[in-house]
């Protein structure tokens, strides 16, 4: 049994835990059933490790299996072959709390902002009291909207509520499926900044799927490029830019630009046409 951990910085990693990755994916292949009955392979022999506290972004053309990867890790989907493990245990038996975030805000439409966030707390390791809920709401810049329902909020605010629910759940791993993909570019940049702020405070492993290459390079420690379907890893590149990163100055940094260039180069653009 893992101890009940509050969302706080992890202890400095001891040498043993460095050996064991947080997420270990080995030779993973995934099929989807197709209308004609034959399975379609969406992921082909993908192997990938994510270290504790590492922020990994996954990019690739539409339909390359980026989201599928997250669904396998969260236990929503069974692979055709290969394994996915968290802390050395199969995803079904993993004790870590997984914080999943979709591109669409999956909020309860009839529930208030507060009640939606409280869902995370109710399923999380500990009750959230009023004071902490208030803190979280203030942190997410949702003050004054506590009693509002999702349909009364903007897209960006709805995603912040989703993020609030995620944080109240105190996940040990973040699996994010284009969480800011539906937002306008300014809101997206602001949300990315918030995510980095949270991540740098708590140092959880993050697997972040996006189709936005600049977003991937701005946020992540490592960028994985998947090929067109069936998705295989085409590039696995370390992003050695200093943190904290400022998206504004980063845009002119030649190292940033050359990384973006490299990722673009690895992308299978034919697939999107």
């Amino acid at each position: 049994m893992s101890p009940i951990v509050a969302l706080r910085p992890e202890q400095p990693a001891d040498p043993v835990s460095v050996v064991q990755p947080k997420i270990a994916i080995r030779h993973l292949s995934v099929d989807y059933p197709s209308p004609d009955g034959l399975p379609v392979r969406v992921l082909q022999d993908v192997s990938l490790d994510v270290a504790p506290g590492e922020f990994v972004a996954v990019v690739g053309p539409s339909g390359c299996g980026k989201s599928t990867l997250l669904r396998v890790l969260s236990g929503l989907l069974d692979p055709a072959s290969g394994t996915a493990a968290i802390d050395g245990r199969g995803v079904a038996d993993a004790s870590d709390r997984i914080g999943f975030m979709f591109q669409r805000d999956t909020l309860l439409p009839w529930a208030s902002v507060e009640d939606n966030i409280l869902i995370g707390a109710e399923l999380g390791p500990r009750r959230v009291d009023r004071a902490r809920l208030g803190e979280l709401i203030a942190f997410l810049k949702l003050k004054g909207f506590e009693k509002h329902r999702p349909h009364e909020l903007s897209g960006g605010m709805r995603q912040r509520v989703s993020l609030g629910r995620l944080l109240a759940y105190e996940p040990e791993i973040f699996l994010m499926d284009e969480p800011f993909g539906a937002l306008d570019s300014q809101t997206k940049a602001a949300m990315g900044r918030e995510l980095l702020r949270i991540w740098s405070a708590h140092q959880r492993a993050v697997l972040f799927v996006t189709h936005d290459i600049e977003e991937a390079v701005t946020l992540a420690d490592r960028v994985i490029v998947l090929s067109a379907r069936p998705g295989r890893i085409r590039l696995d590149v370390q992003v050695d830019l200093d943190r904290p990163r400022d998206p504004k100055t980063l845009r002119r940094d030649p190292r940033f630009l050359s990384l973006v260039e490299r990722v673009w180069g690895a992308l299978d653009l034919q697939a999107d046409l």
């Binding site: 969260s74 709390r97 997984i98 999943f100 999956t106 309860l108 869902i119 399923l123």
Partner: peptide
């Protein structure tokens, strides 16, 4: 909403909780 149910599954929500809340 399938995504909503999937999300609660990833959070290991008990069946009774999903029934009551969703």
């Amino acid at each position: 909403d399938r995504d909503l149910l999937d999300l609660l599954r990833t959070m290991r929500a008990p069946r009774l909780y999903v029934t009551r809340k969703v």
